[in-house]
Design a protein around this nucleic acid. Structure first.
Length: 483
RNA sequence: GGCCUCUUCGUCUAACGGUUAGGACAUCAGGUUCUCAACCUGGUAACACGGGUUCGAUUCCCGUAGAGGUCACCA
């Protein structure tokens, strides 16, 4: 067993959020760079928000990006169970200890009373905070109320007046005043612990040595620290990761674009790109190398390379990285990736030959930012007939008639080429040689040819198009353009 | 509003008292045997502000401003 242990502890409330992925990734980077173990724990203490199948999809997407766990609900381990609702009796034991020590207390306040209290506090421009109404109930009162069947929660007792020092690995020492802290709920009225309690108990029991979590937890850090102190447990190191922001500057939200990793997967972003991109959001390698694989990141990863300020999610950089990784892929791999998208658009079917598909992908791959783009980028290559404005055939100073004439000449030239010699390289050589011999300008012939084949203002070059279309289809298209 | 955190090109960031403030994306220009893309070369572009400390501050300290987070029987 490894000495160093880190964990990712999501709650199964839906698809994995980009921000959560970043937390998972950084935990994983740090764990593996330290040669430690990475543990998955499911924090499902909020049953109201739980979404069926969420854990499964979480596991699926995490494995898709390449995060591998050493322990977790799906593979077991020596510190299970790894699902919090299966650990309720454990929390019961520890809350009892807290109650006995006097560091936690029963609270019988109704939600109506709490609501009213907060309302008044806000009217008086005070921070909403529990008024400790139940803090000093006598033992007899408590017994009687419980016997009476009154529902209750258990709250953490904050010290009267002191400074609480916590230490974040990235920010250093942070000091809070205990009077600013709320007696928050540890055990809910249904007997299930809150995050604030279960998380600490589990991290301790699972022997977690480094906690990586989002910046949004910084505010509850002192309460967590207090819990460790009252239990007499040694605290793990805490690393609060800076938040990821929208282009506008706010917290990443659904309103301003895609926030689920799943969204990016369906659009055809590659895991390599997503991992590389997320890594650069708040971390920087010493040597300025920014194109990095998972293993290179783990190799180079260290806490010193991490920043503390929030980072804006920049889709353009993701696109760049994704394009880069697409270009790295083999044609075979790419065609497997592209086929479902083209099938969905009805451009290919089961009968479409891989060899045909691969030609088309080969001539388009360098233009792809995401796999999804393949359809809109290549639809004209699959269709039987292409429709375009006749004048598009005209190159610069040429007239329409001249352009068509040029096409006629090219048509004759191409007609001569044998099926077996119909390759990109051959076509290019034959046409260029002919242009040179006859002292013709490239653009006068190549532009009309390209448009006749594609019907597009922008496309791959005419030789690539002709090759991908095949001789028969190419000649048909040129012929149609002439007439 | 209270508390906490953060602040270098448009964006992600490097720098750890002395640099022509570096890199990447984006952008612009040129090259690349027609277009687009890709690729190559080059350019524009930043230390939030005000005080200190210091021979010297982007770097250390204190304010101000701005941004973000948090104040639930959600995580």
């Amino acid at each position: 067993m490894n000495q160093l242990r880190l964990r990712f502890a999501p709650s199964p409330t839906g698809f994995l959020h980009i921000g959560n992925l970043r937390s998972a990734l950084f935990g994983y980077f740090l764990a593996k760079s330290l040669k430690g173990d990475f543990i998955l724990r499911i924090e499902d203490t909020d049953q109201k928000r739980e979404v069926e199948g969420a854990t499964k999809s979480l596991l699926d997407i995490l494995s898709w990006v390449g995060v591998k766990f050493d322990e977790g609900p799906h593979i077991g381990g020596d510190h299970g169970p790894y699902i919090q609702t299966q650990r309720i009796d454990i929390y019961q034991k520890y809350i009892k200890e807290l109650l006995d020590k006097g560091d936690a207390y029963y609270c019988f306040c109704s939600s109506e009373r709490l609501e009213e209290m907060r309302k008044k506090q806000q009217e008086n421009k005070k921070a909403p905070k529990y008024d400790q109404h139940c803090r000093h109930l006598s033992k007899e009162d408590i017994k009687a109320k419980i016997k009476n069947g009154e529902s209750y929660v258990i709250r953490q007792k904050m010290p009267a007046s002191c400074c609480i020092e916590v230490y974040d690995e990235l920010r250093g020492k942070i000091v809070f005043k205990s009077e600013d802290l709320d007696d928050h709920v540890l055990i809910k009225s249904n007997g299930i612990p809150t995050y604030q309690f279960a998380n600490i108990v589990d991290d301790h029991l699972m022997k977690i040595t480094h906690v990586t979590r989002g910046d949004e937890w910084l505010a509850s850090f002192p309460k967590n620290a207090l819990l460790y102190k009252t239990f007499g447990w040694q605290m793990p190191k805490y690393i609060h990761l800076p938040l990821i922001l929208n282009k506008g500057g706010g917290k990443l939200s659904k309103r301003q674009g895609d926030v689920f990793v799943e969204d990016y997967r369906t659009k055809g972003y590659l895991p390599e790109a997503i991992v590389n991109f997320c890594a650069l959001l708040g971390w920087h390698p010493k040597d300025d190398q920014e194109i990095l694989s998972m293993s290179e990141i783990i190799d180079k990863f260290s806490l010193e390379g991490m920043g503390v300020s929030p980072a804006v999610f920049d889709l353009e950089k993701l696109d760049y990285l994704n394009g880069h990784y697409i270009r790295q892929k083999s044609i075979e791999d790419l065609s497997v990736l592209c086929r479902p998208y083209l099938t969905k658009e009805g451009l290919v079917n089961k009968e479409t030959k891989d060899s045909d598909l691969q030609k088309i992908i080969e001539i388009s791959k360098e233009r792809l930012k995401k796999i999804e783009d393949i359809s809109s980028m290549t639809h004209y290559l699959f269709m039987n007939e292409i429709i375009y404005e006749e004048n598009l055939l005209v190159w610069k100073s040429l007239t329409l008639e001249e352009s068509k004439n040029n096409l006629r000449e090219i048509y004759k030239l191409l007609q001569e080429i044998e099926e077996g010699s119909w390759t990109k390289e051959n076509l290019e050589k034959i046409v260029f040689d002919w242009l040179k011999e006859n002292d013709k300008k490239n653009g006068d012939y190549l532009w009309p040819l390209r448009v006749s084949l594609s019907g597009q203002k922008n496309s791959p070059n005419p030789f690539e198009l002709a090759w991908a279309l095949g001789k028969e289809k190419s000649l048909k298209r040129i012929f149609k353009a002439i007439n």
